[in-house]
Design a protein around this nucleic acid. Sequence first.
DNA 1: CGCTATGTATAGCAGCGTTATGCCACACTG
DNA 2: CAGTGTGGCATAACGCTGCTATACATAGCG
Lengths: 193, 193
Amino acid sequence: MRTALIEQAAAMLVAREPVTLRALATRVGTSTMAVYTHFDGMTGLWGAVRQEGFARLARRLADVAPTDDPVRDLAALGAAYAANALEHPALYRAMFDAAADLPDPEAAGAAFGVLVEAAGRAVAAGRFVDADPVAVATRQWASGHGLLLLVISEVLPREALAEHVPALLAAVFTAAGDDARRCAASVQAGWSG
Amino acid sequence: MRTALIEQAAAMLVAREPVTLRALATRVGTSTMAVYTHFDGMTGLWGAVRQEGFARLARRLADVAPTDDPVRDLAALGAAYAANALEHPALYRAMFDAAADLPDPEAAGAAFGVLVEAAGRAVAAGRFVDADPVAVATRQWASGHGLLLLVISEVLPREALAEHVPALLAAVFTAAGDDARRCAASVQAGWSG
DNA sequence: CGCTATGTATAGCAGCGTTATGCCACACTG
DNA sequence: CAGTGTGGCATAACGCTGCTATACATAGCG
């Protein structure tokens, strides 16, 4: 029942339908009370939905197989992140609407951890010099997040991603110490492959 | 009446109060119908509020006096942009909730135009080489936007701005062709004062 | 078998945005 | 100056929302 409600809510969100308590209960085939026994009302359900969104994102990023080029891997993670957000834009927006108070913030941070790990490998491989993996991951994340939200909000066209994401990633990675040419090649390989 | 409603709504937004039609009408000293004669219901009022948010942002950026260092100016614009967003976080979030359909999108783009103009001066001054001012401005904007939203959503602490914004701007500007050392100095000068 | 406890169905509450209706005040016209 | 529209607002009601109090069913256990 719990998972049925969460998945139904996520489905309605993806389908751009208004996620209302009554419609949700009807779809699942139960009454509105179920949301109150399994969650703390609608706010609790939204928390669970956001959590599920982060779980899906983490799974998606975990599917990106590491290679011997950590900078390529960072770009590939960015591509997977962007693809996930573009497939479920409403869910992505909802995730960050109140990402501060999540039922299990630690689990939600798993996706970010993958990024930090890859940045750490880049430091270990000597691609990044004198760079804090957390700082690099944060900057990559913030840049991509901002651009993605502008695209999802239709402020920028979808093509803006292909135009600016590789450039932004290359800028961040180069600033972290990577060689400009090599960085561009790695980013290109990871982004489009 | 129009402006009174808009300003009251913006004030309630800033005060973190729920912006409800009835409360709004009571505060302004009128009835709920006024929102329907002057706007197209609540959705129309939200559009006007977002428009007002962009207008305030544009005014704020226009107050940044240009110097003979366009890269410094870009960083100073970023600082003003961030300060404006941090002072009215709820309004800033609302602005981008549906920034696609604004009553007057052209007027809202004025803020972005200031950024493009400064980037153009950097190109003209030879600081940026082979760089499209619109692309540079877009990348700066997207990066800052993403980081700001993460801070406003309390995903990242407020200190993250001071830690990452100058680094991100320097990365973008350096990638546009600016000299690394000179860029760092300009960004630092523009950001902190 | 009976008792308990957990989860669900029902019905009703206050609040929301929206709208139909009626009134009133002001501007225009002969 | 009186008569006549017309635009803007107050009032009240409608359907919808999230939420909750209450009654009922059903599964587990001594």
